[in-house]
Design a protein around this nucleic acid. Structure first.
Length: 465
DNA sequence: CAGCAGTTGTC
DNA sequence: ACAACTGCT
C-alpha cells in the first residue's frame, strides 16, 4: 500500500489543491502535515494570522478526516519535521504547493534535493493565478509596471480549479494547537467565520450582495463594500483560481456586471503582481525595490510610532483605521493607504516599521501583498505612487467618510461632533466641542504633527534622494 | 523606434 | 505644477 504526505503551508483547503490531488492520484493512503516553522529566514506568521491558522487548521482537520486524511500539526525546522513524519507515516512521496519568498524557495529547493534522494518529492502550482516565471514582457523580462502585467494576465487561460479528492472517512483526531497565538487575538473572533466553507460562502455573498457597489464603494470604508476575502486567500482557504473562475462564471451569467467583475479581478491580479515582484526582486520584505529609497533619511520617533499604532494620533481617519485594525485584524484598502501614508510621509518613519505592525495585526498579512503595498505607498515599490503624492488624511476623510460614519464607529469619543467637524476636531469652535463633550488634549489627542509642515518635510526628504 | 499610457493626491 | 520620467508594445 503506497503512502503519500502532503505538506500544507498557505493552502488550507480541499478543493483546488493540486498537491492534495496529486497525492491522492498516486497513493492509497494520504497524510497531511502543517508545520509551524522555526527555520531561520522563514517569516513566522503575525499574531492575527497565527490565531487564524489555529482555527482554520481545526476546521481543516475535520474536513480532511471526511476524505480519509489525518492532519498532523507540528512545530520545528521544516526538514527535521518532514524526515521524522515521513518515517513515522511510511510515506514514499511528498507533495506541496509552491511558495515564492526567496528564503521559502531556498528552503524548499534544499529539501526537495535532499529528500528527493530517497523519495519522490513534487511541488505544484496552486497559490497564484500564474506562476511568476510564466508571465513576462515581450523581451522576456519580469514586469515592473502593473498595467501591461494586467493586460497580459487577463488574456491568459487561467487553469481551472480542481475538485476536492474523494476518500473514505477516518476518525478525526483533534489537532494539536500547542503552538503560540497571542492572547490579544481572541478579540478577533466576533468578526470572522473561518474555514474553506465560510470562504466559499463569502465569495458567493459578495457577488450577490456587494458587487454592485464595489467599484466606487470600495473607497468608502463605512460601506463595507469589499469582499473581505483577503484573510481566506492568505491562508489558502480559497484559491485565486477559484475566485477567478467564479467571477468569470458570474459575469457570464450576468453580462451587465462584466465591468464590475473586471475591476474586482484586476484587484485580485494585484496580488499576483506582488507575488511576481516577490519572486523576481530581492527580498521585498526588507529591500526597497527602487534602491535609491535605501538612502531615505527615515526618522526614529518612538512616541509618534506608538501613537500611530494605538490610534492616538489626533487625526480621526488615521485613528479610526488603526483602531479598526487592532480590533478586527482588518482595514479596507483606502484606509490602509491613508494610515500608511501618514506613517511614511507625515511621520517619515520607515515603511518596514509599519509593514511589521500590519504583519502582526492583519488577519490577511501576506508575504507579497503586505510589503508590496507598503512599498507602493512609500514610493519605493515597482509602479509605486510617486513620493510627492501624499495623502492628506483630513481631505481623505472629507472625501471618503463625509458624514463621519467610519470615524464615529471606531473613535466613539468624537461621535457627537457634527459631520462638518468630525474629520478635524481641533479646528472646531469651542462651543461645538463643548456640546459634543470633546476636550482636545483630554478626551481626544491633539494632532501629533502638523499635516502641512510634515508634508513639506516629506517632499524635501524625497528630493534629497 | 515612436508613440502611448501611467491605480488610488494635493495645493 | 509637482517632473518630466520610464516601461512596454
Amino acid at each position: 500500500m503506497s503512502k503519500a504526505l502532503v505538506w500544507l503551508r498557505n493552502d488550507l483547503r480541499l478543493s483546488d489543491n493540486p498537491a492534495l490531488v496529486a497525492a491522492f492520484k498516486e497513493a492509497d493512503d494520504v497524510t497531511a502535515l502543517f508545520i509551524f516553522e522555526t527555520d531561520e529566514g522563514i517569516r513566522a506568521p503575525g499574531g492575527a494570522a497565527r490565531w487564524w491558522f489555529n482555527r482554520s487548521l481545526t476546521d481543516l482537520s475535520e474536513r480532511l478526516a471526511e476524505i480519509g486524511v489525518h492532519l498532523l500539526v507540528e512545530e520545528g525546522k521544516a526538514e527535521d519535521v518532514l524526515r521524522r513524519v515521513l518515517k513515522d507515516v511510511g510515506a514514499t512521496s511528498l507533495h506541496w504547493n509552491r511558495r515564492y519568498h526567496p528564503a521559502e524557495r531556498a528552503l524548499d529547493a534544499g529539501i526537495k534535493e535532499r529528500l528527493g534522494e530517497d523519495i519522490a518529492v513534487e511541488s505544484h502550482p496552486g497559490n497564484v493565478l500564474v506562476e511568476p516565471w510564466d508571465i513576462a514582457t515581450g523581451t522576456g523580462k519580469s514586469y515592473s509596471v502593473y498595467g501591461p502585467f494586467w493586460k497580459n494576465l487577463r488574456a491568459l487561460d487561467i487553469a481551472e480549479p480542481l475538485a476536492a479528492p474523494k476518500g473514505k472517512a477516518v476518525r478525526h483526531k483533534k489537532v494539536d494547537e500547542s503552538y503560540r497565538e497571542p492572547k490579544w487575538a481572541k478579540k478577533l473572533a466576533p468578526y470572522w467565520t473561518i474555514g474553506e466553507t465560510a470562504a466559499q460562502e463569502k465569495l458567493a455573498a459578495f457577488f450577490d450582495e456587494r458587487l454592485t457597489d464595489y467599484p466606487q464603494g470600495r473607497d468608502f470604508p463605512a460601506l463595507q463594500a469589499t469582499s473581505h476575502l483577503s484573510p481566506h486567500l492568505r491562508h489558502g482557504e480559497i484559491s485565486p483560481r477559484q475566485i477567478w473562475h467564479a467571477a468569470k462564471a458570474f459575469a457570464h451569467a450576468h453580462h451587465a456586471e462584466t465591468e464590475r467583475i473586471n475591476k474586482f479581478l484586476s484587484e485580485l491580479a494585484w496580488r499576483d503582481f506582488n507575488y511576481h515582484q516577490l519572486y523576481h526582486r530581492d527580498d521585498i520584505v526588507r529591500v526597497a525595490m527602487h534602491t535609491k529609497y535605501e538612502g531615505m533619511k527615515w526618522r526614529e520617533a518612538p512616541e509618534q510610532l506608538e501613537a500611530w499604532k494605538r490610534g492616538r494620533t489626533g487625526i480621526p481617519m488615521v485613528d479610526a483605521g488603526m483602531r479598526e485594525l487592532w480590533e478586527t485584524g482588518y482595514m479596507e484598502n483606502r484606509v490602509r493607504m491613508l494610515t500608511a501614508s501618514f506613517l511614511c510621509k507625515n511621520l517619515l518613519i520607515d515603511w518596514r516599521v509599519g509593514e511589521e505592525w500590519f504583519w502582526d495585526c492583519l488577519c490577511d498579512g501576506d508575504i507579497a501583498n503586505n510589503p508590496g503595498n507598503w512599498q507602493w505607498v512609500a514610493g519605493s515599490g515597482m509602479d509605486a505612487s510617486p513620493f510627492f503624492r501624499i495623502f492628506n488624511p483630513v481631505t481623505q476623510g472629507e472625501r471618503f467618510d463625509a458624514d463621519g460614519d467610519y470615524v464615529r464607529r471606531w473613535v466613539p469619543e468624537l461621535a457627537e461632533l457634527p459631520d462638518k467637524h468630525v474629520q478635524q476636531p481641533w479646528a472646531a469652535p469651542k462651543d461645538v466641542l463643548a456640546k459634543a463633550g470633546v476636550k482636545i488634549g483630554e478626551t481626544y489627542p491633539e494632532p501629533i504633527v502638523d499635516l502641512k509642515e510634515t508634508r513639506f518635510r516629506a517632499l524635501e526628504a524625497a528630493k534629497a534622494l
